[in-house]
């Protein structure tokens, strides 16, 4: 039965493997829908969704909005920059006010880890976490693993390395949970100052040499350096980071196999990844974006059934 074990999508951590498979199988059908000439279905025409973004976003917000519109939901958008949050309103008050306008689901991004969990305890609407600080970004992990499944047939047994700023990345944590639940082997790679101290407790391999990491893996998910979240200096300069951890074509050519290159965006070309890698035939970066809409349609569709 296509049914999730949860009422909210707060993180990957509290999903089951069956939940992930249900989301993937539903997304398969939505991917077919968005590749037709008429890309819209009427499933959520009686649902109103608020996209509440307390932090900047381009890809995720557009992707959610498109997914909602293709499901025929009514959509309202809210960003903190132009709102009463600036006037001192609390998170709960802001969202309660939005819900008084009869909103059924809330898609929220917030800079504080746990903000959507807090909200889920206090309000009746279904919450979808679109990124909470450095904690989780569940739909990104879903679309990343879905893209691996699409490219390689299955996720189980694959070796996936996540390269870059692991400490400040919600994408990394959600990806680790999702990949492990699906049976993949996970390695993280980056400068020691950008790796969380006890990360190996999660059962992931830790590698400091990017060349060795690339030799080991089938898939490399390359993350951006999140300068906006770094309060102290973790490495001498971007140039030096790029020299030691930037993935370039030469490194890939030196491997005796082909690996799949992923990046959740936004890309800083020339820093963590060079243009010739990002645009190469091994890169599935733009497939990830396309799959993001199908995955988000599946998540919203399945959560709406829980209302």
């Amino acid at each position: 039965m296509a049914d999730l074990s949860v009422k909210h999508l707060l993180g990957i951590k509290n999903l089951t493997e069956q939940d992930l498979q249900t989301i993937f199988e539903t997304a398969d059908q939505f991917k077919a829908v968005i590749n037709r000439s008429i890309k819209k279905v009427p499933s959520l025409r009686d649902i109103t969704i608020a996209n509440v973004f307390f932090e900047n976003s381009t890809r995720t917000r557009l992707s959610f909005e498109l997914a909602e519109k293709r499901l025929s939901a009514d959509v309202i958008n809210f960003s903190s920059a132009s709102s009463s949050v600036k006037k001192g309103e609390t998170l709960l008050d802001t969202v309660k006010n939005i819900l008084s306008m009869k909103v059924d689901m809330v898609v929220m991004r917030h800079s504080s880890p746990g903000a959507p969990h807090f909200l889920a305890k206090h309000i009746d609407a279904n919450i979808v976490n679109a990124g909470d600080g450095t904690h989780e970004h569940p739909t990104q992990a879903l679309l990343d693993t879905y893209s691996i499944r699409e490219k390689h047939g299955e996720v189980g047994g694959k070796k996936v390395v996540i390269i870059g700023d692991i400490s400040h990345s919600r994408v990394a944590l959600s990806n680790i949970f999702a990949l492990q639940k699906l049976g993949a082997e996970v390695m993280i790679c980056g400068p020691v100052t950008l790796l969380p101290k006890y990360i190996s407790d999660l059962g992931v391999k830790v590698e400091l040499d990017v060349r060795k990491a690339l030799e080991w893996c089938d898939v490399a998910n390359i993350l951006r350096i999140q300068l906006e979240r770094q309060k102290t200096k973790n490495f001498p300069s971007l140039r030096e980071y790029s020299l030691y951890y930037g993935v370039n074509k030469k490194m890939l050519n030196a491997l005796d196999k082909e690996i799949t290159i992923m990046h959740p965006g936004p890309i800083n070309r020339g820093i963590e990844i060079t243009s010739d890698v990002a645009d190469s035939e091994h890169s599935i970066i733009l497939d990830q974006v396309e799959n993001g809409v199908a995955i988000r349609m599946a998540v919203l569709f399945l959560l709406a059934q829980k209302r």
Binding site: T26, V33, P42, D46, Q305
Partner: peptide, 15 residues
């Protein structure tokens, strides 16, 4: 995805 009894059924719909 086109049913009008979506969310009004006891059992979830499987596409």
């Amino acid at each position: 995805f086109y049913r009008d009894d979506f969310r009004r059924r006891d059992s979830p719909l499987t596409p």
